[in-house]
Structure formats: C-alpha cells, structure tokens
Design a protein around this nucleic acid. Structure first.
Lengths: 345, 345
DNA sequence: TTGTATGCGTTATCAG
DNA sequence: CTGATAACGCATACAA
C-alpha cells in the first residue's frame, strides 16, 4: 500500500503537493508536477487510508445504521424481508452519496452507543427505536440522527423521523375490514409502544367511527421473539374461533399466523380473514396473497439518507415528522362477511 | 469526547500510563494510579477512537463483507431472504468476536476493491463471487479472505471456501424427483457458472444414474435480474406443459415461478412439481410448502467468520473447501407421477 | 508554485 | 512504576 509520503519521496517533492493533486487543487500546482503525480497515482493504484483521513478531519465518512433487535438470539431479525429491503435501500443510497454504512444490530443499546462513538460516525440512522432508547442515544451522541419508524417524544428538538402515516394506514385497513362486514376483529401487535401503538390508535378510531367499542379481549400482544413459537401460536389458534378477522402489525406475523392456522384446517379467507402491514415480499408470495398496508421501503431509505446528509451539511430541521403515504393493498386474504355472522369454528 | 491526552493532563500523568490502565496492563502501574484513572474513565465515559488505533496498529478491526450484486438496480438483492439470513448470521458472529462489519454491495468489482483497501479491512468475506472476480480481488488485496458459496479455481493457493455440497444436494433432489417418477424435468438456473454450474452437474449425474440423458432443451437459463420480470416468466409458462417438474437453483426463483404458474391455473403439485434450493424462510411460508435442499445458513456464516479469524491470527489453510452437508427437505410441492405419464397441459 | 511544520488520538519503545 | 518521544497517514495553515 503506497502512501502520500512514499510518493513525495519518489518524486522528490513534498507531501503537500501530492495531497493537493489528489484533491484536485491543481490551480496551485504546475501542470508538469500534476502530471508526474498523476502518473504515479495510477501506476501504484494509490488508495487513501481513511483512518488517517478521519483523524485529521474529525469525520469518518461512515453512516451508522442501528437496529435494536428485540428478538431473542435464535431468530434472526433480518429474516423479516422488510429489514432486508430497507437495509438494501439504505446501503445503496449511502454508497451512492459517497459514504459507508456500518450496521449495528443489538438489543443492547449501550453497546450500540459505544460502537457509534468509537467510530465517530458522521451520522446515525436509528431503525425502530423506542422512546427511551432514543433519549439514551442522544444523550451521548450529538451528531445528526435520523429515525426510521420511530415515535419520539415532542420534547426533543431537532429530530427527524421518517415514518409512515401509520395511524391512517391502520385506520384504513380497519375500515376496509369493517366495510367487509367484520365486527369481531383481533388486533395483533408486538408491543404497545412506538409504531404498534399508533397503529392501534388508528384501529380504534376506525372502530369508533363505526360506533363500535374496542374490546380489551381483542387486543392480542405477543412479546418479541415468541410469536413464531409453537406455544404462542397455539394460543392464538385456540382464540381464533372468537374472531372473523385478524389484523396484524406486520406482514411477517400475518404470514406466520396464516400458515399456522391453514395447516390446522382453518380456511383463509373463508373461515377467517387476515391482514398484514408493510407490503413486503412475503405478502405477495404467500397464497392467499395478503391484503395489507403498503409502503415504499426504498423511498423510505432514500429519504432517510437524504435528510441525514442535509443535516450533516448543516441544515437544521426542527422536528420533522415525515409521514410517507400508505395505501391499502387489497389482495385475497379478506372475504366479505355478514356483520351479524358469528365467527366460524 | 474525552481523549487519553485530556485525561493524562487532568491527572497530571502521562498518556502512556493512562493507556496502560485502559489495556489492563496494571501490573506496571501503581494501584493508586489505576484507581484514579479508572474513576475518570468511568466518569467521562471514555470511548477509544478507533481511527487512531487503526493508524498505529495497522489494522482496522473491520471485517468486510462483499456481495457482488448481479441483479439490476431495480431489484434489491437483499430481498432474497437467503441473503438477509446470511448477513444477520455474519453480523452477529463478527460482533461477538469483537470486530465490526462493513458491507459492500455492488456489481462493480473495482469499487468493492477500492473500498476494501481504503478501509484497510482486516479480513474479507466474499459472497457468491465468480472466478474472475476473485482473482481480481486477490491481486490487490492480500489479507485473509474467505469465500462463501464460490467456486475458485484450483490454482489459487491458500483459499478457503465455505460452501455446500451443492453437487450432492442437486444430485439427491434430482434422484428424489426421479424416484417420484418424473422424467421430463426442467433445470432452471441463473447462469452456468459457479454454484449453479455445480448444481447442474449433480443434476446431470442423477439423470445418468437413471439411464437418462440430459436434453439440452431442459436447461433453462434466465439472466440475472430478469427472472422476476413478466416476460421471462411468461416464456417459462409457455414451456411448462413440456415438463412434469421444474428444478430451480434457489427457493427465490422457485417461489416466484410457482406463484406465477399457480395464478394462471397450473396446479402445483398436481399439474407440475417444483423444487427449490436453500430452504429459507420462503420455502416454509409458501403453500404448497416447497420441497427443497436444506442448509444451515447460520452455521455457514459462523464457520466463515471462524475460518477468517483463524487466518487473521496466522493459521494457514492450504486450499480448504468446506462443504457443509445438505439434505433434501421434503414438503408439498412434488407429487408422484407415472414415469410414462406425459406432462399435463 | 512548492515546502515546512504541526496536529489528529493512539500505541510502542525505551530510558529513567 | 512512570514518562518522554516517535510513529502511523493525511490535511492544512503558513512560510518561502
């Protein structure tokens, strides 16, 4: 690996001059020297050492992407195609803008913070963080940060969140279910914080608009990492007969649920309707194809990077809460029902 | 961000001593000093600057993971759950071993090389590279490299590849199809290099064992990035009636194909049997569940990291070609057929 | 137009 | 047990 110093010595000139040529400050260098340097640059395929550059410039050219993995270690978070898509989109955009992406996946926030600080990351993208986590990160990390799919408290200044209009999405898909005659709807969530909570609110609003009250027993929460497990699924299965529809907070859950039920003889959508949220690969691939709430993941990733770079360049956003549009994607997992019809066994 | 220098000044001692305490070389420092330093360390939440460390130690603590993305830019490579799973496994293992992961996804090898050199990555994991790419990378990057799912030429010394016993996997699933009576089998691949080619060989061997000859028209190749597209699928659809089974080189392709066919009235497996390769999330989620060749992706990732770190620590492996075991996972996408039975329309 | 000197944060050598 | 000092590769303010 050749260095600037090496080349300066070889040409009998100073490192300053070589550095200038590398950075295109050719106005300050004679044409002849420029050529000599450029020849060497090419010949030895010079590649700058970014550690050294980071040190002098106090910036790293790294964008950190942190996922708080709330699942247990046996299930791999990235397995949800939503994350794969998002990471792919982020990677492409970050690279296109001349930065590098470093990923941190952990359920230990302090580990994430340590890594981010260690690398002196120029900007940070936080995916799916909850309130407290964000506070903790910001208390230590002062550089630009963009959230994806998070709900931060209002008190925090200068934060940007790229999310969906989750409330509306949940509202609309619930309306759709109601319009199709469903009255006994189970709401399946991961937790009751952040995105899931907002979706729950949209769900409730729709019920109210139809003069229905949310029944407590219709809210089914499955703690992270357990939904795939046999026992929790069996529990859901036992309760299935009380509902005509399951509204799930992600395609991933919806699909797992759907298959578990189908494999045990429940016909979807004939016996039970199911909806998802995300519109990722799985919802399209599954049969019956999943009726879900759609979003443009690629756009989400691009937008996040876009905001972040603007912040890095000095733009201040006072509390931007970007809500990307959502739309109900109707496929085949919901069937019309007579409102008075009781759930099938 | 507090630095070692800052702390040394505050305590009126030298940076060396502080550094020693940080690294646990307490045998050379008085107990009293140790305590004073540790107190400060905690109070100011000292985090080392890794750029500086990299500079002095000529190592970066980064493991590069490069995927050559052979698809066009509209389809996102990571969307294939196989890659998501693999990346998740790699990330977890790399972090657990005290390193950091930097991902490069690009179809431009020289871009990948540049990035790897710029960051002075300690080791490199190359996923799905073809012959020429590997040669190019190695000509510039001399540090330890581990391949995943690649087939490198014998001439290259000191390379490690973590792959599957692809030949055997393809052989066995073909045998399974043959045993089920199938005689008109289409083989669907991405290309005729690397892994896909080896799988093709296994396929052929099985045919030979059954006294059949591989017919040229049974080999269907779809160039990267096109298989999802309507036109290529339609083409496949038109040819479907010539076969009783499709053997696909990945679950991803199998699932896309299967759905396209099913949506147009072909019943699977009644009219046509389909098999995949990988046994990832999709094969389990789809209905009929996909009969495929299984592998342990997590183990694959762990093993790759394991080898790489051993190489970084100085172990030499002369041409290790690790072939992880495969096994045919029988699910519901293949049905028995009378050998003389001709393909259904 | 070119060169010198300095500093970024850390580690390592070696002398005290 | 402790501390000066140099070195890593690069960028930049300033001097010539």
């Amino acid at each position: 690996m050749i260095t600037i110093k090496d080349m300066a010595e070889m040409l009998g000139i100073s490192t300053t001059t070589v550095s200038n040529v590398i950075h295109g400050k050719t106005s300050e260098v004679s044409q002849k020297t420029v050529e000599r340097v450029e020849k060497l640059l090419e010949e030895y395929e010079y590649v700058p050492n970014i550690s050294a550059r980071s040190l002098t410039q106090n910036c790293s050219n790294i964008i950190g992407v942190a996922l708080k993995c709330r699942k247990d270690k046996y299930t791999n978070l990235i397995m949800d195609p939503f994350f794969g898509e998002l990471l792919g989109a982020l990677e492409a955009e970050i690279r296109a803008r001349g930065y590098f992406m470093m990923i941190y996946i952990s359920n230990d926030i302090s580990e994430i913070i340590r890594n981010v600080l260690t690398w002196n990351v120029d900007g940070l993208i936080l995916v799916g963080m909850l309130h407290d986590d964000f506070i903790r990160v910001k208390s230590r990390y002062k550089k630009p940060t963009v959230l994806i799919d998070s709900y931060a408290p209002r008190e925090i200044m200068n934060y940007v969140n790229i999310g969906l209009d989750d409330e509306k999405g949940a509202y609309e898909i619930t309306c759709y279910l109601l319009k199709m005659g469903h009255r006994k709807i189970a709401f399946l969530a991961d937790n009751m914080e952040g995105v899931d909570y907002i979706r729950f609110q949209g769900h409730q609003r729709a019920l109210l608009d139809y003069g229905l009250e949310m029944q407590e027993e219709n809210l089914l929460i499955f703690h992270p990492g357990t939904v795939e497990r046999e026992s929790s699924l069996r529990e859901l299965y036992c309760q299935a007969k009380n509902y005509t529809a399951f509204m799930c907070c992600s395609d991933y859950y919806a699909v797992i649920l759907m298959n578990y039920f189908m494999d045990r003889g429940i016909k979807i959508p004939e016996d039970l309707s199911v909806t998802g949220f995300d519109d990722n690969l799985m919802s399209r691939i599954v049969r019956p194809a999943l009726t879900t709430v759609g979003q443009d993941v690629t756009e989400k990733g691009q937008l996040a990077v876009d905001y972040l770079l603007k912040m890095i360049q000095g733009t201040e956003f006072s509390e931007s809460d970007v809500k990307l549009p959502v739309k109900v994607v109707i496929r085949d997992s919901v069937r019309p029902v007579q409102p008075e019809e009781s759930p099938k066994e």
